[in-house]
């Protein structure tokens, strides 16, 4: 099944720190910017929702036509650096497989925490690890 999915990790001040087109559908020319636009717009909704729920997994928060945005809210505190990062893992997808998405988020979250634990990674900076990238793509193939 060809599906569309775009995964983005948004750090503080709404700066994207990781982007990946993980869908298997053939790429449209303007897909990248459309997906960015949708995810970017969804930040507003996430911001609203963040204060109303204590759940980390926000399910689908926004939709545009048949594309759905799911978000995991990461409010983790890096105690060793005494920095709190307000990070959001956002997935734009067109699948109904909520369980898959949830497990995808769980595993990516773990990966993200591993990245955070890296003393050479400055929280809030772009994630450039190729290992992370391959892992995320593998997870996307597995769950989405």
């Amino acid at each position: 099944m060809a599906n569309t999915a775009c995964f983005i990790i948004v750090g503080r001040n709404d700066i994207p720190i990781y982007e990946a087109e993980v869908g298997s559908a053939a790429k449209r020319e303007d897909a990248a910017q459309l997906h960015q636009f949708i995810l970017h717009a969804a930040l507003d909704v996430v911001q609203d929702l963040a204060w109303t729920t204590s759940a980390m997994f926000l399910k689908s928060v926004d939709r545009f036509n048949d594309l759905v945005v799911s978000v995991v809210q990461v409010l983790n505190v890096c105690f060793f650096l005494n920095l709190s990062t307000h990070t959001r893992l956002m997935l734009l997808h067109d699948s109904r497989n909520e369980d898959g998405i949830k497990s995808f988020f769980q595993e990516v979250h773990e990966l993200y925490i591993k990245i955070l634990l890296n003393p050479l990674y400055l929280p809030g900076s772009r994630i450039t690890s190729s290992h992370f990238d391959t892992k995320v793509r593998a997870l996307a193939r597995k769950y989405l």
Binding site: F37, I38, H40, A41, A42, L43, D44, V45, D48
Partner: peptide
Amino acid sequence: MLHKYGFH
């Protein structure tokens, strides 16, 4: 909701 504003 400025993000939405921009998008629309």
